[in-house]
Amino acid sequence: MRVISTLYRRFAQLIHEVAKFGTVGAFAYVTQLAATNLFWYVLGLPELVGQALGTFCATVVAFLGNRFWTFRHRSHSGLLLAYVLFFGLNGVGLLIQVGCLWFTVGVLGLDGPLARNIAGNVVGVGLGSLFRFWSYRRWVFRAPVAAGESERA
């Protein structure tokens, strides 16, 4: 039991960030589904336009949730730069998802609905989310600089 409590104390902040990141991601995903379907079926927008606008809405929700909840204890300088980095890194995450789908369909030749969903919506989203979490912590919502480190820099 002591090992578990020691591990928890050591990784408590990371565990809480991962849990909050997942919660924000779930809200962003629901936002994407709702907004995209609203744009398609209520407003009658074309498929790609509705998808793009739904993705934009989800990205805004994800940015706000991660900035003001998941990583609120981290540095928050430069809102515009953080937002540009956030969108750019989301683009890389999207490329990871599309790459998984391309590999499954184009290289492996698996082109059924199950293969597409596993490749794009399970493996691709999973790998993309791991990349997003790591990159947000590293570049968008950086750890605050300690007092001694700022004097050395």
Rank of each mutant, 00 (worst) to 15 (best):
residue 42 V to K: 15
residue 4 I to Q: 13
residue 82 A to T: 01
residue 142 R to G: 08
residue 79 L to C: 08
residue 136 Y to C: 03
residue 65 G to Y: 03
residue 82 A to R: 03
residue 129 S to H: 08
residue 128 G to L: 02
residue 94 L to D: 09
residue 91 G to K: 06
residue 138 R to S: 11
residue 8 Y to F: 04
residue 17 E to D: 01
residue 138 R to T: 09
residue 68 F to K: 03
residue 23 T to F: 11
residue 84 V to R: 12
residue 11 F to Q: 08
residue 57 C to K: 11
residue 29 Y to R: 12
residue 140 V to Q: 01
residue 78 G to R: 03
residue 59 T to G: 15
residue 75 S to W: 08
residue 72 R to S: 04
residue 10 R to L: 04
residue 27 F to H: 10
residue 10 R to H: 08
residue 47 E to L: 13
residue 138 R to L: 11
residue 23 T to P: 10
residue 92 V to D: 13
residue 13 Q to C: 03
residue 110 L to Q: 08
residue 137 R to E: 04
residue 123 V to F: 09
residue 115 A to G: 04
residue 133 F to M: 04
residue 49 V to H: 14
residue 56 F to S: 14
residue 117 N to R: 05
residue 139 W to A: 00
residue 85 L to F: 05
residue 87 F to W: 13
residue 70 T to K: 00
residue 13 Q to Y: 05
residue 27 F to K: 07
residue 123 V to S: 07
residue 15 I to E: 09
residue 141 F to V: 02
residue 49 V to S: 15
residue 141 F to W: 01
residue 14 L to E: 14
residue 26 A to T: 09
residue 23 T to R: 05
residue 28 A to P: 08
residue 115 A to V: 00
residue 96 I to A: 04
residue 51 Q to K: 14
residue 79 L to Q: 09
residue 116 R to K: 10
residue 88 G to E: 06
residue 107 V to N: 10
residue 47 E to W: 12
residue 11 F to D: 14
residue 85 L to I: 03
residue 109 G to Y: 10
residue 14 L to C: 10
residue 13 Q to T: 04
residue 13 Q to R: 06
residue 108 L to V: 05
residue 39 F to K: 07
residue 113 P to Y: 05
residue 43 L to E: 14
residue 76 H to G: 06
residue 10 R to F: 05
residue 74 R to M: 00
residue 25 G to N: 01
residue 33 L to E: 13
residue 81 L to Q: 13
residue 90 N to I: 02
residue 112 G to C: 05
residue 150 S to G: 14
residue 70 T to L: 00
residue 16 H to W: 04
residue 149 E to Y: 13
residue 148 G to N: 14
residue 119 A to R: 00
residue 65 G to A: 07
residue 66 N to M: 01
residue 126 G to N: 08
residue 4 I to K: 11
residue 121 N to E: 06
residue 129 S to Q: 08
residue 122 V to D: 11
residue 55 T to S: 13
residue 104 T to C: 15
residue 83 Y to N: 10
residue 12 A to D: 09
residue 119 A to Q: 02
residue 82 A to L: 02
residue 5 S to H: 12
residue 100 C to I: 06
residue 30 V to H: 14
residue 109 G to I: 04
residue 31 T to M: 10
residue 146 A to D: 15
residue 85 L to G: 05
residue 114 L to Q: 07
residue 149 E to W: 10
residue 42 V to G: 10
residue 46 P to W: 00
residue 141 F to G: 01
residue 148 G to K: 12
residue 25 G to V: 00
residue 120 G to F: 01
residue 141 F to S: 00
residue 112 G to P: 07
residue 58 A to F: 10
residue 55 T to I: 15
residue 120 G to P: 02
residue 86 F to H: 06
residue 58 A to H: 11
residue 113 P to I: 00
residue 147 A to L: 13
residue 46 P to V: 03
residue 42 V to E: 12
residue 109 G to Q: 10
residue 64 L to C: 11
residue 93 G to A: 07
residue 69 W to R: 02
residue 60 V to P: 13
residue 125 V to Q: 00
residue 16 H to S: 07
residue 22 G to L: 00
residue 63 F to P: 05
residue 146 A to T: 11
residue 91 G to T: 02
residue 93 G to V: 01
residue 64 L to E: 15
residue 97 Q to S: 07
residue 129 S to R: 03
residue 142 R to A: 12
residue 65 G to R: 02
residue 108 L to G: 09
residue 5 S to C: 09
residue 109 G to M: 09
residue 87 F to R: 08
